[in-house]
């Protein structure tokens, strides 16, 4: 039987696994720990064979996923039995499909049946995509709140979405889909992966 992780270690390793590669400051920005504390946790996870630390960044090892899964099964048994959460998760699947399509329409536009890169010169088009994104993000409110009743850490997703949307409103459009920033796509992807792990489900093809 796979042993489980204690809570701060789960949070740190979980965020690392969601980000796939991250330094202590990026992890500390999401979990309620200082960068120094995260650094210490990472060193201990590395010593336990669950992470590799190289050149200021850490990556999860292949042993990380099974350990996280075993821990999630234990600490989120209550979430998995919460009918309110499960009903909201059903809706999320639909919202997720709409989000992926909307992200693609931010990156590419249809010109005469051919997809070409969106050069972002059509402010009205971009504005419509952004408002659709805002609506889709808004649809997660109930689910995030329901999850946060079990574990307060889920509330950080609401804060991250709000920060990204505020930046976009201020004209920082990289915050829509940039993979190197805490963009809507980055936060959404991490939320989705986190949700799947929390529920013990696999990602659908």
């Amino acid at each position: 039987m796979t042993t489980t992780l204690a809570k701060p270690d789960y949070d740190v390793l979980n965020v690392l696994a969601l980000k796939k590669m991250a330094g202590a400051p990026a992890i500390a920005a999401v979990v309620e720990l200082s960068p120094d504390d995260v650094e210490e946790r990472l060193a201990s996870l590395a010593a336990g064979g669950l992470a590799v630390v190289a050149g200021g960044a850490a990556l999860p090892t292949d042993e990380a996923e099974p350990r996280l899964a075993a821990t999630a099964a234990e600490i989120y048994a209550g979430v998995r039995g919460d009918d309110d959460v499960l009903a909201l998760v059903e809706q999320f699947e639909k919202t997720n499909a709409a989000l992926l399509t909307t992200m693609s329409s931010w990156q590419q536009v249809d010109v005469g049946g051919r997809k070409v890169a969106n050069d972002h010169t059509d402010a009205a088009y971009d504005g419509k995509v952004i408002s659709r994104l805002e609506r889709l993000v808004g649809r997660l409110d109930g689910l995030i709140a329901a999850l946060a009743r079990h574990d307060a850490r889920f509330a950080t997703y609401a804060t991250r979405f709000a920060t990204a949307l505020a930046g976009i409103d201020d004209g920082d459009h990289d915050l829509v889909s940039s993979p190197t920033r805490d963009s809507i796509h980055t936060v959404w992807f991490e939320f989705h992966e986190d949700l799947l792990r929390t529920l013990g489900r696999e990602r659908a093809e």
């Binding site: 399509t101 693609s104 990156q107 940039s178 993979p179 796509h185």
Partner: peptide, 13 residues
């Protein structure tokens, strides 16, 4: 996987 998937979005980015 489809071009609209997470990996597709990342590869365009």
């Amino acid at each position: 996987g489809a071009p609209e998937s997470h990996l597709g979005i990342l590869s365009r980015e």
